[in-house]
Structures are given as C-alpha cells and as structure tokens.
C-alpha cells in the first residue's frame, strides 16, 4: 500500500531535482491559488499550468489515470447532479428534468479545479520518496511529535496491513462469510479490529523499549538537524523554480480578484 506512491520517485526530471522542501512551498502555494479560482476564464490558464508541470515531471500518464480511479463516486455524483439542481437559467427541459446553465458552469469549475489540484499533489508527492517529503515538512517547522508519529505510523502501515490480510484469511478458512450482515458478523469484525488493536498495542510497547535503548528522547539530534538545514543550499534551480511557482500563484490570485465576474 505504501510503495505505490514511491514507484516513480527515483526518475530524473527537473521536478525530481527540485529539492522537496522548496517544492512543497512552491506547489502548495499553487494548489491554494487553484482553489481560489472562481472565474471560468481562468480555467484554461490553470489547465495549461498543470499540464506544463506534469510534463516536466516525467511521470507516466498511466500513473495519473490509475490514481484518478480512487476519488470516485462522490465527485461523479456531485458533478452529474449539480447541472440539474443549481441555478435559474434553463437551457434544456425534458419533463421535470431541467438542465440549468449555472449548474453546468459550477460542475465544470469544480471538476477542473479538482483535477488540476489532484495532478499537482501527485507531482508533489510522486516525485520524491515519501520519507523525504516528511523530512522536508519537518524542516518547514512541523512539530516534532507529529513528525515522529507520521514516520512511525508510516513504518508500520504495511506490516499492520499484512497482519490484517492474514487474519482475514484465517477467519475465511474457518468458514466466515463476509457477504452477510448479522449481529454475529458485526461482532466477529469488531473482534478482528480489536485483535489488530491489541497486537498493535503490544508491538508498540516493544517498539518503545527498543527506541529508548537506542537513545530516543535525548535532545542531541536537534543540533544535528539545524546544522543540516544551514548546509542545504538554495541553489539556482531551487530558487528559480520556487520563485516562479510562487509568482504564478500570486498572479492567479490577483487575476481572480481583479477580473470581472462571469
């Protein structure tokens, strides 16, 4: 489950070479600028920006398409429903079914924004190993407790996922049928979840002991980290890429404010 996102993290491209810390600043400001867009006239602009960034990243298109599968039904439902319920200007009527102009525009706006932000997020987290991204967030000031929890949780995701798969196999081999809903089945699934929690709890006690024995909680590593930060240089590529995206993001926001309403 966790390795999918790292699949293309080691390619070589302009975006891959962009240091993750600065990439986070640049692309997140772009994401926020995109979510600011309310004017239809700006949609082609954000599509072009997204396309350029995606092409620069060298990520295969199939990767993007496979990722689009997940968000799924909710978005589809909203996008299909809106043209029929929102707005006053009727462009098509068929019995009680009325297609409304404002609803159509809202649907287009939402889906384009959604698609562009999703693509940029994929570029952001798909072009560097996930652990590098978390470390970059730490250098941007994410609290230590959250960083530690994220790293540890990430470390154990796959293991606990496998644990659950094996336990599900074991109950299936003893005749448990998933398809039915009954009080008993709900109880079995609660016990399954409970066993997972108990095993995680027991494991966490061992993890803690192992961490303490290797010096977890001492303050020394903090100094190390600061030195590393100072050493990391803001070279030409990082500077250019980051300032360019931030400027684009700011211009988009200004354009959104200055442009006349639709």
């Amino acid at each position: 489950m966790r390795l999918i996102i790292d699949r293309y993290a080691y390619l070589d491209s302009l975006i891959h070479r962009w240091q993750q810390k600065y990439k986070l600043v640049g692309l997140i400001s772009l994401i926020f600028a995109f979510s600011f867009v309310q004017k239809i006239t700006l949609l082609p602009v954000i599509v072009v920006i997204t396309t350029v960034i995606f092409c620069l990243s060298n990520l295969p298109l199939s990767f993007l398409l496979s990722r689009l599968r997940y968000p799924g039904w909710f978005i589809l439902a909203v996008v299909i429903l809106l043209p029929f319920v929102a707005g006053d200007t009727i462009i098509f009527q068929w019995g009680w079914l009325t297609l409304k102009e404002e609803g159509c525009w809202t649907s287009i706006l939402i889906s384009v924004r959604f698609f562009c932000i999703l693509t940029i997020s994929l570029v952001l987290f798909g072009t560097a190993p996930f652990l590098t991204s978390i470390k970059a967030m730490r250098s941007l000031g994410l609290p230590q407790v959250i960083v530690d929890m994220t790293l540890l949780a990430y470390r154990y995701l796959e293991e606990l996922g496998n644990m659950l798969t094996t336990m599900q196999r074991a109950i299936r081999l003893r005749g448990f049928r998933y398809q039915q809903f009954s009080r008993r089945n709900l109880k079995i699934l609660a016990q399954l979840t409970g066993s997972l929690l108990v095993r995680s709890y027991e494991r966490s006690n061992k993890v803690y002991q192992a961490m303490i024995l290797r010096g977890y909680g001492y303050k020394i590593p903090q100094i190390d980290r600061q030195q590393k930060n100072r050493l990391s240089q803001l070279d030409k590529l990082n500077f250019l890429a980051t300032s360019a995206t931030v400027i684009i993001a700011i211009s988009l926001t200004i354009a959104e404010i200055l442009l006349p309403a639709n």
């Binding site: 074991a170 399954l192 066993s195």
Partner: peptide, 13 residues
C-alpha cells in the same frame, strides 16, 4: 484446515 505460522493471526475471540 491451515494452522498459521503465527497463532496470533488466527486467534481473535
């Protein structure tokens, strides 16, 4: 029947 390597995988009640 399959007896799993780790009994914890099997015991849930």
């Amino acid at each position: 029947g399959l007896v799993f390597q780790n009994p914890d995988d099997q015991l849930l009640c």
